[in-house]
Design a protein around this nucleic acid. Structure first.
Lengths: 223, 223
DNA sequence: CCAAAAATCAAACGTTTGATTAAAATAGAA
DNA sequence: TTCTATTTTAATCAAACGTTTGATTTTTGG
């Protein structure tokens, strides 16, 4: 059955990519773990890179759909008024912690999130560019809402703070498993970790501005 | 001159590791960029992995020394009273943005910081473990000071928030160059980026607790 | 100036890599 | 069944990998 083979490859690749990275995972590792022939990856996916894209898409697409669904919901309820920063952040982050439980496949549960964190930092520009494309609409929609939510901040500062948020998130995705396994005193339920992350990033985003915006007019201040 | 060769190798390796990662950088890439013989790396450093460790140590050791120096200074001035969270975060983050300018070598300036961000997420456990060792004292000292600075938070929450901070920092280190080059509207001076990061993480760390601590019954202060 | 040590060099080592091939096996429809 | 398209298989490919070698050049100290 072809669909079974493809799924086995996707599952094995997801976990191996997450644990060892793209470059440190060989086709032989993947096909051995999936218990399929070495040539199966090239037959079903074309290449190792295409397989990677397929793995990412399988996880990212439903993830971002859920993000947008939550954002739609918030904006409908708000009826034109700017959204509360915390609720905006919540809509963006919660889906990451939910797919973890909502995933149907057996073992791929935690691997995809780990992989997400890894792929934001460790990828070659070629592959990374293809990934960023999967986020375009999410980036567009959420940053628009964020600007409305925090109108007192200058655009440049907001961009950097958004980068800080994504950094916190992806770093956490990658290391959550390790921290939970190795630090008994850090035991928190996933929902609690999510809540800490939401509070942390929401407060961080809405911190007072320290520099006068100079993207417009600039009445004073050099730098 | 041997010291010259070693430095050339370190510089080239630093930049290539930062741009493409450890696995995606070959010995031939490094020695070609350094304009030395292929065997030179193994002769001077022993192996590719040892070269990587050497690259990291060259940057990390002075970095962490400066961090500890600033922490000493803060604690001396405070004379026993808990430090302000913002000042603590500032002492930890500022050195990252200072080595960028204080670096004497010609091109390695930005590469090391980029490499730091990358190596926190993309490394094989073997290599990563050796790296973490270089941070032991810094982790120990700063987390102790942080617990004193935020006594109302439960230990577990604090650990996770610290992880969020490190995530923001390393993610920023890796992507700062890309963002500055590709997003004109995100132009900020390094000092301004640093200040945004300090404000973001300080406010995030000191966000109110959402869950009652359950790690201990103690009415106040743990350690 | 000369021997000993240090450094550099071109060449080759064995292994692993992603990808391809042509044959074999399997499936579904007529 | 037979025919045909899909899938799996084992074998093989050239390229790239980190490392080692033995000879050669350069530097050092007496």
């Amino acid at each position: 059955m072809t669909t079974l083979t493809k799924t086995r490859i996707l599952d094995a690749a997801e976990q191996l990519f997450a644990d060892h990275g793209f470059s440190n995972t060989s086709m032989r590792d993947i096909t051995a773990a999936a218990e399929v022939n070495l040539a199966a990856v090239n037959y079903h996916f074309g290449s190792k890179e295409s397989l990677f894209i397929a793995v990412m898409e399988r996880g990212t697409i439903p993830l971002n759909q859920e993000r947008l669904r939550r954002l739609d919901e918030l904006e409908t309820n708000a009826g034109g008024t700017p959204l509360a920063t915390e609720e905006l952040v919540r809509a963006f982050l919660t889906p990451m912690f939910e797919v973890r439980n909502g995933w149907t496949e057996p073992r791929s549960k935690d691997s995809f999130l780990k992989l997400v964190g890894r792929s934001h930092t460790g990828l070659e520009p070629t592959l990374h560019a293809k990934l960023v494309g999967q986020y375009e609409e999410v980036i567009q929609r959420f940053s628009q809402a964020l600007v409305r939510s925090l109108p007192h901040l200058q655009p440049a500062g907001l961009i950097w703070r958004t980068l800080f948020l994504v950094g916190s998130m992806s770093f956490t995705m990658t290391w959550a498993g390790t921290v939970l396994n190795n630090r008994p005193q850090a035991q928190l339920a996933p929902q609690e970790i999510l809540e800490e992350l939401i509070q942390f990033t929401a407060k961080g985003l809405s911190a007072p501005a320290r520099f006068a915006g100079r993207t417009q007019a600039t009445p004073e201040v050099g730098q």
